[in-house]
């Protein structure tokens, strides 16, 4: 039995490795590109691995200092973390209410979801006008709120699914013991849906981190997120490919750290999940 399992793991491991090669090749390509010079980007035959003496941080330094990359990392972090926290915080409360009390029924839940469906091109200018009235253009708030509109429905629906799958008896017994509704939510429900919370946090962060259209429209100078800064490296005549790749490498670091950090909670979900059914 035991050796059977090991064989199975080796076979699956092989499959996963092959898949991983496909998924990581573009990432590797980006990493290699970040060490190339401009004339190696379009070379024929392609330069796959740049020569050894080029393995320096010039493109990274260029992207971070020459083009405002440091500010961009900071701005994107602030916007993405805030959006993720607001979406998951507000979203988990709403999800609890929708899942447990079926407030407003299916129609109401669907309305919430539908706010993510609206084509952003159509809502961009009205939102721009709202934030102009509030004098919030070129502030973090404008971007955080715009991203929240699109991420909150996702968070609510994802968490709603997780809460619905929890047996209600646990909360009921806590309530009988005299815990408040919020207490039951906070101490019983939230820990039990931690895999869901973590997934929601991770993806709302990533969706915001990668968002471009609102980042462009709602900012000017004081706030300049990474996507706008990276897009700015593509001039009309001079696309700074290597700097774009270097910025891309820098831009995945927070995400990867977040995954490593949140992984533990997903894993913990394994033991928690035992409570289901």
């Amino acid at each position: 039995m035991k050796s059977n399992r090991t064989t199975l793991r080796i076979v699956i491991g092989l499959f996963l490795t092959v898949a991983l090669v496909f998924f990581l090749f573009p990432v590797l390509w980006m990493f290699l590109t970040s060490f190339k010079t401009q004339d190696q980007i379009f070379a024929s035959p392609p330069v796959i691995i740049p020569p050894r003496d080029q393995w320096n941080l010039d493109n990274y330094i260029g992207a971070l200092t020459g083009s405002g990359g440091l500010q961009a990392v900071r701005d994107s972090l602030i916007v993405s973390i805030s959006t993720a926290l607001i979406s998951v915080g507000v979203g988990s409360l709403a999800a609890y209410s929708l899942a447990r009390y079926r407030l407003g029924g299916d129609q109401f839940s669907f309305w919430i979801l539908s706010t993510r469906m609206f084509p952003p091109v159509a809502s961009a200018i009205p939102l721009f006008l709202i934030f102009r009235q509030l004098k919030w253009i070129d502030t973090y708030w404008a971007l955080i709120l715009c991203n929240t509109i699109f991420n909150l429905p996702f968070a609510i629906w994802l968490l709603k699914g997780f809460i619905e799958d929890l047996p209600v008896e646990l909360e009921e017994s806590a309530l009988i013991d005299g815990t408040s509704v919020f207490g039951a939510f906070w101490r019983i429900t939230l820990p039990l849906i931690s895999p869901g919370l973590v997934t929601a946090l991770l993806f709302t962060f990533v969706f915001t981190w990668n968002e471009f259209m609102f980042a462009l429209l709602m900012t000017r100078r004081a706030v300049r997120p990474l996507t706008v800064m990276i897009q700015s490296l593509a001039g009309g005549h001079e696309i700074l490919w290597a700097q774009i790749a270097a910025s891309g490498v820098i831009a995945i670091i927070p995400g990867i750290l977040l995954v490593i950090f949140l992984q533990r909670y997903i894993v913990r979900g394994l033991t928690m999940g035992a409570l289901k059914y």
């Binding site: 990432v27 990668n210 996507t227």
Partner: peptide, 15 residues
């Protein structure tokens, strides 16, 4: 496997 998600379309598009 999650790394591709971390790459903004404005970056991966160029790659």
């Amino acid at each position: 496997f999650l790394i591709p998600i971390m790459i903004a379309p404005v970056v991966s598009g160029f790659q």
